[in-house]
């Protein structure tokens, strides 16, 4: 039946993913009292995330009528930051993948390996290097000062959400290049020739053939980047400063500093659900539009 082939992966998934997630779900229905965990079933943790209040907390000019608005605010902030990072990643990765797929003749593997070289180092090291690049006396600041363009180091480079987005974008580019490259590579070149014969300009060819046919890879790449970055914890901790926190930082805070593992679990589960719903909505919207396009 082929289940034998699947068994190793399935075992690992159940042990390393399914069971921990189940434990997290269970924990989120319990509650913390002092040093102990009260194991009676309660929805209190989830209620806390949406409990309304008459007094709004204003964040970024938006009033939040919630008693405990932090998870919602950080969720929105994380989603926006990840979205920007994802757009940046696709913007960077698409031309790279296009270049390798269409411009490189021979030895494509060599180019793919070249693209992944920065990713042979650890993620942590790469984040730290961004700290050195963006830092107060880092590469950018000392370079600009050497050129005489600025007198004092620019302080807005590090310890803010922008630094987090830059670091995330760089860290995830390689993961986006590969799926986009594969879908570009698969495109039947005769389609492009046919379009050229029928009088399409280069731009029209890209717009009407290359882009739609590479969409599956591009969407896969976006999801591959978007989903993990929403919950990222390492990057905001290292380059985010006080203003660059994301939802992952809150989960860490609840588990380790505030000693409230049940609420932390509820936040993580809620985060997973929100991301799942958003992704499902996106996929549905894309599929929907395609159907409409075919009908008309």
């Amino acid at each position: 039946m082929g289940f034998g082939l699947l068994a190793p992966a399935l075992t690992i998934m159940v042990l390393m993913l399914l069971l921990p997630v189940m434990a997290l779900v269970m924990l989120s229905f319990w509650s913390q009292s002092g040093f102990d965990i009260d194991r009676s079933f309660t929805l209190e943790n989830y209620w806390k995330l949406i409990e309304p209040s008459d007094e709004p907390t204003v964040w970024f000019g938006i009033p939040f009528y919630l008693k405990y608005p932090i998870p919602v605010i950080l969720m929105i902030k994380s989603l926006v930051m990840s979205l920007v990072a994802t757009i940046a990643v696709i913007g960077l990765a698409y031309p790279m993948a296009y270049f390798v797929a269409f411009r490189v003749r021979g030895n494509k593997a060599f180019w793919i390996i070249l693209l992944t070289i920065p990713f042979w180092t650890s993620y942590l090291l790469r984040v730290f290097s961004w700290k050195i690049v963006l830092g107060f006396n880092g590469a950018i600041n000392s370079g600009l000062m050497y050129l005489g363009l600025i007198d004092a180091p620019l302080e807005f480079l590090l310890y803010n959400p922008t630094a987090v987005i830059i670091t995330l974008a760089h860290s995830w580019v390689a993961f986006a290049v590969l799926p986009i490259y594969v879908s570009l590579e698969k495109i039947d070149r005769s389609l492009l020739e046919a379009a050229a014969d029928l009088g399409d300009s280069r731009w029209q060819r890209f717009w009407r053939i290359t882009l739609p046919l590479s969409a599956p890879g591009t969407i896969a790449a976006s999801l591959l980047v978007f989903i993990p970055t929403v919950g990222d914890y390492v990057t905001p901790t290292l380059v985010g400063g006080p203003g660059g926190t994301m939802i992952g930082s809150l989960v860490q805070l609840l588990f380790l500093r505030q000693d409230n593992a049940p609420l932390g679990s509820a936040v993580s589960i809620a985060m997973m659900l929100v991301i799942a719903v958003l992704v499902a909505l996106l996929l549905w919207a894309i599929g929907y539009r395609k159907m409409r396009a075919r009908r008309s």
Binding site: T57, P161, T245, L250, R257
Partner: peptide, 9 residues
């Protein structure tokens, strides 16, 4: 303290 930090933009 944790909540306060989280609210910083």
């Amino acid at each position: 303290w944790g909540d306060l930090k989280a609210l910083k933009l």
